[in-house]
Simulated assay, not measured.
Amino acid sequence: MVDETEAGKGRRTPTRKEAEAARKKQMKVPMTRKEQAKRERAAREEIRLKQREALKTGDEKYLPLRERGPVRKFCRDYVDRRWNFAEFLLPFLVVAFLIMIAGSTNANVQTVLTSIIYPVVIVGTLIDEFVMVRGLKKQIKQRFSPDDVKGNTAYAVLRTTQLRRFRLPKPQVKRGAPLAQRY
């Protein structure tokens, strides 16, 4: 005979499947705010690592938002396939600064540098940028839509001012290579 005075637990015993699901759910839910912050930091770091790798390889899926899209890829390829006067501007300025410091005793060196060479380099850069932007606008209008020109030319100009080896995303085309038909 069973003694009916004993109290039961008041609920049915969960199935094995339900018990395992409950345990897994407990493992996923952070116990404290610190633990949750730690998991979020780890997730952000993982995204950053994927983006950094994508900047090296050109993987479109993980690129940062400002670098994504067929128009931006086209702009990068358009800039990377040509020689740009602007990419040599910064090294020239560093060399000119060093010459100015080292040649400070010789007034002829400073005069030639500041009155002839420096303006020629600046004007050359401006002319090259003008030619590049004009050609880029024309190509974007042909391949995409006229609305895509805005913002992408500034992106391309900024890319030309960087030395080729330090550009991110890394150049995917060689200098002088023809542009692909599809993007």
Rank of each mutant, 00 (worst) to 15 (best):
G69K: 02
L163A: 08
T153F: 03
P169L: 01
A42W: 05
I116W: 08
Q110S: 13
V94A: 10
K56E: 12
R68C: 05
A7L: 10
K24T: 10
T32K: 06
G8Y: 05
L49N: 11
K9L: 14
D148V: 05
M100L: 13
M31W: 07
S115E: 08
L163Q: 13
A42V: 08
V95N: 07
G58N: 00
G151A: 06
N152V: 05
S115R: 10
P171W: 06
T13H: 11
F88I: 07
G103S: 02
T114R: 10
N152W: 01
Q162C: 07
E18H: 02
G176P: 01
N108I: 14
V71W: 00
R11T: 04
P30C: 07
V157H: 06
T111E: 08
E46G: 14
G8N: 06
Q172N: 01
A37R: 07
K9W: 15
E4A: 10
P30Y: 02
Y118L: 13
L168A: 05
P178W: 00
L179Y: 06
E60D: 14
K141T: 09
M132N: 03
P171C: 04
T32W: 03
R48D: 14
E46N: 04
R12Y: 12
T114E: 09
E129T: 15
M100D: 11
K170R: 13
S145V: 10
R48Y: 01
L89N: 02
P171D: 06
L126H: 09
R33E: 15
R182H: 12
N84Q: 12
A86T: 03
R182M: 13
P171L: 04
G103K: 01
Y62V: 09
I122P: 01
L63I: 09
A154R: 08
Q139N: 15
I140H: 01
R68L: 10
G135A: 00
E60G: 07
T114Q: 12
G135K: 09
P171M: 07
D80K: 00
L93R: 09
A22F: 07
E40L: 14
L63Q: 04
R159V: 02
A86Q: 04
A7H: 10
D147Y: 07
L168V: 11
L90G: 11
R41P: 01
E45M: 12
P146C: 09
V123I: 03
F85K: 11
A154K: 10
K9R: 15
T111V: 13
L93G: 11
E67A: 07
D128G: 01
A19P: 08
D3F: 10
Y183P: 03
G176T: 04
R52T: 13
